[in-house]
Write a protein that binds this DNA or RNA. Sequence first.
RNA 1: CGGGGUGUAGCGCAGCCCGGUUAGCGCGCUUCGUUCGGGACGAAGAGGUCCCCGGUUCGAAUCCGGGCACCCCGACCA
Length: 562
Amino acid sequence: MRLSKSFVPTLKEVPNDAIVKSHILMLRSGMVRMLSAGIYSFLPLGYKVIKKISQIIREEMDAIGGQEFHLPALNPREIWEETNRVEAFGDILFQIKNRDYVLAPTHEEIMTYHARNVLKSYKDLPQTWYQIQTKFRNEARPRSGIIRGRQFLMKDSYSFDATPEDLDKSYEQHYEAYRKIFDRCGLKYFIVGASSGAMGGSGSQEFMVKSDAGEDTVAYCETSGYAANVEVATSRVQAKVRDAKSEEVKEISTPNVKSIDELCEFLKIDETQCAKSRVYICGDSPVLILMLGNDEVNETKLEKVLGGAIRPAHIEELKELTGADAGSIGPIGFKGRIIVDNRLKDANNLYSGANKNDYHLGGIDLTRDVKDIEYADLRIVKSGEGCPISDGTLEVFSAIELGHIFKLGTKYSQAMGAMFLDESGKENPIIMGSYGIGVDRVLACYLEQHNDEKGIIWEKALAPYQIHLMGLNMRKQEIVDASEKIYGQLSVAGYDVLFDDRPDAQAGFKFNDADLLGMPVQVIVGDRKLKENKVEVKLRATGERFDIELNNLLTKVKERLG
RNA sequence: CGGGGUGUAGCGCAGCCCGGUUAGCGCGCUUCGUUCGGGACGAAGAGGUCCCCGGUUCGAAUCCGGGCACCCCGACCA
């Protein structure tokens, strides 16, 4: 492709509304332009990369027997009512105003719809169906460029199996295919255990890329390789040891003491002697949560324990339920379910709120003073805590979710009546899995990981062009002749070449654009070298330069690019 | 949805507090000339509903009210 004729609008300056690296690079290199918040147009250069990523995905999906579909993004709302997900998605689901349609945020329903009409026998199973398609989600706050948009490209696939064992196989195949895909794309990623969330199902894992621009938080142990989304992560922390002797419960006046830190300061005690209370509402019922000291409640874990959505109690509700404000709430006398974090298992001599403003209780013995306690792991893990499966230490950091694989089970097939007959003639719901990759996030993550102060550094697999050829001074006929000839040779040899043939751009301009656009190999045709019948080859990744004889160029390029 | 910020030429910004010539600067763009291996130089140009609507005023980019858009933090997030 000739740069003089292509639409690759590079930017010297950083547009003011781009903050994250990948976003800046996409804008500067002319790959994307924003149309509206969270809605981006891919320009030719960016779309070329998207096509490369898609191709890798297709190859690996086809390799595990996947069959590519193309489903409509515009869906009748009634299909979404069948699984009750109009309500579940809430405001995230785009709804069409002048007809009863929605814009699909994912495609479980539509795939299940097709499955139920066709997959009637165990002989029809297993099936793996996938597509690469635009999804729509009405995100409240799009951010970080393409990383969280209202419209994005996703590869979503769905497996249909007759038995849980077969689902395990489909899941495992996807796991391996995803590793191949991300490896081929040149991404450094890791795989974490995750929460299935509102998707339902029994198991799920996420493919994560470490990045400050990420919206997920993961805990990772270098020593053991343990990695988990903090939503489900556990750590090796010491539980409170029960004292030999339980003291009597005593009421203590604690004026203006609200937080655990203030309580410790006021009573000259350690935070591990305190039980912090949090009240949540699940359905219509209040639940009191007790945590050791300053431990934070992991709401995802709590939802799993309670089996439903929760929200923190409002200030007025707290007053009504306990007679006290936040900061003076405690387990003794609380009317409602009480769930205590494992770290406080059977603890005694604890300090907690008295359910009376400005008072706390000391000497609480959970086994003696509180009836009907349930225990569960409810903590959010913190950096520096022990790894749960080794003697290593957990590191907690943000990450971008690139892909997610789910064992869905029968949630959708049951709701939508996708049934098959097994060998004994008995009707069963099809067992499903669903698997997603954020295609444009692959691009964003790649850029987050492969850049320097000059711009992008493409590796062969995703590079929009393999070679960036520059004719430095295109007013000199010998340079025009030589670079045109090289352009022809390289193209004939099968390389995708971006040819900077702009007649009026200065050398420095071309060099900087080439470094910004970041093709793996730069071929520089200039006066000086040409006099010796040579051109210069520069490798973008390392900055190494080689003077190459004209008739050796193809060999040299082959050496680098294959 | 809460908090903060921004909106002036294609891009980056100044001007606004304290209203008053013809709204300015850098980059980019057009034409001509000189340059030509790390974002050149000179000359001449083109390009604006100063986000929108309303108000105050003799007069509004500037002051006041309302709205919209975008960015950041948080809440939320298969």
